[in-house]
């Protein structure tokens, strides 16, 4: 269940360090109660005004009173501050932003498709679908094994396919023929190039991209999250739209034209 945006003071209650990656659990009951899979949270990082802009995160886990953000290894100043913030720190959070993934009534088989780090943002919808006792398959294509979601992080009933480009096991293309005809609905997170490949594969294996079949998370960066600033616009759904209001989850046909 999601609702309107709130500005909260979340408390950093747990830090999990896996190599260079940090996962932070934030105690934030007011925001967690409104947050859905695929919605963004804008987090202020730093003690003063440096950096000035909030960082956008898509939670990788959502519980009743908390949510988890993942910090991949990168050189971002705001992310660096979060890596150093001690447990007990209070973080200023604004969210949820936009419209997330929706599991339509009547679906039984959910296919989650992720590319690289973005695959992690699918975890909440995978968990939600499993909780509804739907058949769920997650297929992820990562560059390095470090980006991969460990099988232990998935519900036991979820079928998992993983390809690592560096490991020589190639891309997800080998699985399209098997997985796409099986699925009732697809949820995906990755780059626009990944979505174009997905669209091509759907055309090949299902002949046409039906509206409602595939939902994709648009890779946008937000400033205000309310639609005022016009920073997050994207050329989708036949026009230049504000991702924070119309997305960030769009129907694949809105992102990749069916031509």
């Amino acid at each position: 269940m999601t609702g309107g945006m709130v500005q909260t003071r979340a408390t950093l209650v747990e830090r999990r360090v896996i190599g260079a990656v940090h996962e932070l659990r934030l105690h934030d009951p007011r925001l967690a109660a409104r947050l859905g899979a695929g919605q963004a949270v804008l987090v202020r990082t730093g003690w003063g005004m440096i950096p000035y802009l909030r960082r956008s995160f898509y939670p990788i886990a959502i519980a009743a009173d908390s949510w988890v953000l993942r910090l991949p290894p990168d050189g971002d100043l705001g992310h660096a501050w979060l890596r150093l913030a001690p447990e007990g720190s209070e973080l200023d959070c604004l969210g949820p932003v936009g419209i997330g993934f929706r599991l339509p009534d009547g679906v039984r088989r959910v296919l989650a498709l992720g590319e690289g780090e973005a695959a992690w943002t699918l975890l909440p919808v995978v968990v939600e679908a499993d909780a509804f006792q739907l058949a769920v398959a997650l297929a992820a294509e990562v560059i390095t094994p470090r980006q991969a979601i460990p099988p232990a992080r998935l519900p036991a009933a979820v079928e998992y396919r993983l390809t690592t480009v560096e490991g020589g096991r190639g891309r997800l293309d080998a699985f399209w023929a098997e997985l796409l005809p099986w699925a009732d609905v697809v949820v995906a997170a990755g780059s626009l190039a990944f979505y174009r490949r997905l669209a091509e594969a759907i055309r090949e294996h299902r002949f046409v991209i039906t509206r409602g079949f595939a939902q994709v998370l648009y890779p946008a960066t937000f400033l205000c999250g309310t639609g005022a600033c016009l920073a997050c616009v994207a050329d989708v759904a036949g026009g230049r739209r504000r991702v924070c209001l119309r997305g960030p989850v769009f129907d694949l046909t809105d992102v990749v034209s069916d031509r």
Binding site: G225, T226, A228
Partner: peptide, 9 residues
């Protein structure tokens, strides 16, 4: 606040 339609929390 946009055109008066975009109010943050």
């Amino acid at each position: 606040v946009g055109y008066g339609d975009c109010w943050p929390p």
